[in-house]
């Protein structure tokens, strides 16, 4: 019986190492600027984790996930500023709204195949973003929403980088554990089955429409939660942060890290969020290098960095034992 759950045991060990790594970062990095980068990675990673479930496991591409990220952020912003709602309640409302929107869009969109689903989500994402821009009385229009309150717990305010760092990454770790459990459960198997061979999944009794809808909603809720965390962290949001480019970046993070592995989502996010920091030496031309890196990684490692590294490692080991 031990062997059966072996695969997830490795994941737990990986997670343990990762937590230790986070502790080291939190302990040794005193510079708030770098700590903030790690906070942003954590926030984005939560959203990308959800998208990874959708893309890497269920095989459905969404080019409009920034909409859910934005819905979360704006729900938090609007409900706390205009209606004085408790931030946690606002966060929860954001997730509920995102889930509802995912249901409304997903019900017809997920019947579409391949390219068409990507297109429908793309259209949805852009429409939502235009709404953020144009519903100025609620959203503050193109210039954005200012003065979103910080999160508080009893008397403690999450106003320092290190406190938010701990909060965000704790949430990430919890979601990562739940997601790992999910993909290694009958539900997760059904998602993976439909991502691998839809007709065969149906032949195994999986209602693929419902299954797709469920993953889509889960991924929307993750993105929404991430958006709320973002809003309460930077306390200022504007439509530009949730546009088409943002959706594209999220898809890219999943693909670069590697589809079909949740660790890939984490790795892809870490690389792409921190990349601009390394590229500041190129000043204005960082986007150019960013594009170049995307192209090169996708050409030479189409299965993503995680799988490619595993392969290289295996080959290396093979040579060791045979050489």
């Amino acid at each position: 019986m031990n062997i059966h759950f072996g695969s997830i045991r490795y994941q737990y060990i990986g997670l343990l190492f990762f937590v230790i790594f986070l502790f080291l970062i939190g302990f040794f990095i005193k510079n708030d600027y770098y700590l903030n980068v790690f906070v942003l990675i954590g926030i984005q990673a939560i959203a990308v984790l959800g998208l990874s479930l959708l893309m890497g496991y269920a095989g459905q591409v969404s080019l409009g996930h920034a909409a859910f990220y934005g819905l979360g952020a704006y729900a938090s912003g609007i409900l706390t500023i205009h209606y004085g709602l408790n931030p946690y309640l606002a966060m929860f409302c954001g997730m509920a709204i995102s889930a509802l929107m995912a249901l409304i869009v997903g019900l017809p969109a997920l019947r579409l195949k391949g390219h068409y689903l990507a297109m429908a989500t793309l259209g949805f994402g852009i429409i939502i973003n235009i709404c953020f821009k144009e519903m100025a009385s609620l959203t503050g229009g193109p210039s954005g929403l200012v003065g979103i309150p910080m999160l508080k717990f009893l008397n403690f305010t999450f106003d320092t980088s290190i406190s938010y760092f701990c909060l965000v990454w704790s949430i990430f770790i919890i979601l990562m554990v739940l997601s790992l459990h999910l993909v290694n459960s009958p539900f997760g198997r059904a998602f993976r089955a439909l991502g691998s061979h839809e007709a065969a999944a149906q032949a195994m009794g999986v209602n693929t429409h419902i299954a797709k809808l469920i993953v889509f909603i889960i991924s929307a809720v993750y993105a929404s939660l991430a958006g709320s965390l973002y809003a309460h962290f930077v306390t200022f949001i504007s439509p530009a942060s949730f546009g088409f480019i943002c959706s594209i970046k999220m898809v890219t993070m999943v693909a670069i890290g590697g589809m079909g592995t949740l660790w890939g989502a984490l790795l892809g996010t870490s690389i792409l969020v921190s990349l601009p920091e390394f590229l500041t030496v190129f000043s204005d031309y960082d986007v150019l290098v960013y594009g170049l890196i995307l192209i090169i990684v996708m050409i030479f490692m189409p299965e993503g960095i995680v799988q490619a590294s595993i392969k290289i490692f295996r080959n290396f080991k093979y040579k060791e034992t045979n050489g």
Partner: peptide, 12 residues
């Protein structure tokens, strides 16, 4: 994603 990379690159 490759074509998106191309698009970002050309814009840059």
């Amino acid at each position: 994603i490759i074509t998106i990379g191309v698009s970002i690159f050309l814009r840059g």
